[in-house]
Structures are given as C-alpha cells and as structure tokens.
Amino acid sequence: MKLLHFSSALLLALCVSSAVSAAGWGTITGKFVVDGKVAPPEPLVITKDKAVCDKNPPLVDESLLVGPDGGLKNVCVWLSLGRRDPQPPVHASYEATANDTIEVDNLACAYVPHVVVVRPSQKVEFKNSDPIAHNFKVDGFANNPFNTLVPAGGSFMHQFPSEERVPMVAACAIHPWMTGFIVVKEAPYVAVSAEDGTFTIENVPAGDWNFQFWHTSGGYLSEVKMGGKTEKDRKGEYEIKVEDGKATDLGVITVAADKLKK
C-alpha cells in the first residue's frame, strides 16, 4: 500500500508516452533465410499417453524449422528500448486489438502456436483440446510464474501484466517434451517469422529504432547478413530506419546455419 508510488509512476509514464504522436508511420518487412545445411527436425520421444501424443507423422522438435527455400520460421523481431527509455507512440490501428484474447492450445501434445505474442493489455486463453489433462507451467522474469492444470477440453484465462525481456517458456510437467514461447512486449511492434521466414510489422513510428532478432533455437541472432553487409551484435540488436508512408524492406536477412544452436 505504502509503495503505491511505484505502480502509479509507471502508469503515469505509460499514459504520457502513449499520448505522444509520431512524425508519421511506416512498415518493416523482411525474410529470414538460413545459409547452410540444417538437419531435419528430430522426432520427439513420446513416453506416455501414446494414444493421443504418438501420431503419424510424429511430433518433432520445433526449435529449428527451415522451409524448402531456406526460410527460417519463428524468429521473433521486436522493437527494443533502452532500459529507461519511454515507450514509443502507438498507432491507432493497434487500439482495436489492445484487449484481444490470444489463444494457445494443446493439440495432440504440442503447443499451437509454438510462439505467441501478447501485450500486457491483452489476455491469453490457455486451452486444451486434447482428451487428456495437460498443464501449463510458465516461467518468466517480470511476471509471476504459474503452473496450472488444464483438464481435457478445458481452458483458462490469464493476463501477463509486465513486459518480458526475452520470451517466457511454457512447459508441461506431465509431458516434458512440450515447450512453447510467449513473447510479452508493451509496444505492439513485434512479429514472428512465418514458415517461409517472412515477417511484417505495420505502422511503426517513423524514426531510427533498434530491433532485436531472437530465435527459438538459441536466443539472440548475434550475426546476420542484411543488405549484403554482415552485422554483428551480441544482443541481436540492429538499427532499422522507418520513414513515413514507406515500407522498409530489409530484404533477405541471412543467418549462417552454424550460428543457430540446437
């Protein structure tokens, strides 16, 4: 109670920042491609509830998925701020989704989708469409961890009030091969690359921003080739210029296969 000022100061900071408007808005697109050979994903070892979990084709390790033309799936791209920087202005187009519910399902003993993105204002529905019980054990850093069982066919709602530096990990204590990721960011400028490696972030405020590239196989992408130039950053942070009314196409962003840890 006496410490109310922490949270009220935070609220104030949020209100002030979202009231700021930008000098225009632009779009960022790109495509992550792996350079080099990557082994096909390994089938997971299913130790129990085989009737439900042991399917054909078998469940595979989803940490490193590469499409037919080398496209890298599940690279998370988010606008990265210095630790005490104000939040960037938020485009009106994001207001409509500010209170959405994002769904994560248990489907045949895998999390679908494998990576989800939420904002603190949004809710997550943790679902279980399987005929057996699962549990969601979610560990982050800024948010309280939880571990809740979800009955067959059941679901529950949860809200993550704080932004997380890196994606939170979801796991099932009953079926230990299951993992998923939850990206919680205050600013909505976040994307996860699709099966073919492409991603788009719309309506980013014009300006020079840092974006972080993070992949489910081993964290930050500390070395990439963009626009023919090799760039390195230990925290996977790269500067991207956004101009009003324009699309910044980063083109093909190449990641060397040997830089992707399994």
Binding site: N135, P145, N147, T148, L149, P151, G154, F156, A173
Partner: peptide, 15 residues
Amino acid sequence: NGIEGAKMPAAPPIV
C-alpha cells in the same frame, strides 16, 4: 495451488 518449484500444478479453476 499446486506446489511451487516442484512441478505439481494448481488444480484447474473449474474444479
């Protein structure tokens, strides 16, 4: 509530 740190999950709210 489950047993924190020891993998035992909280019972689902519908119970």
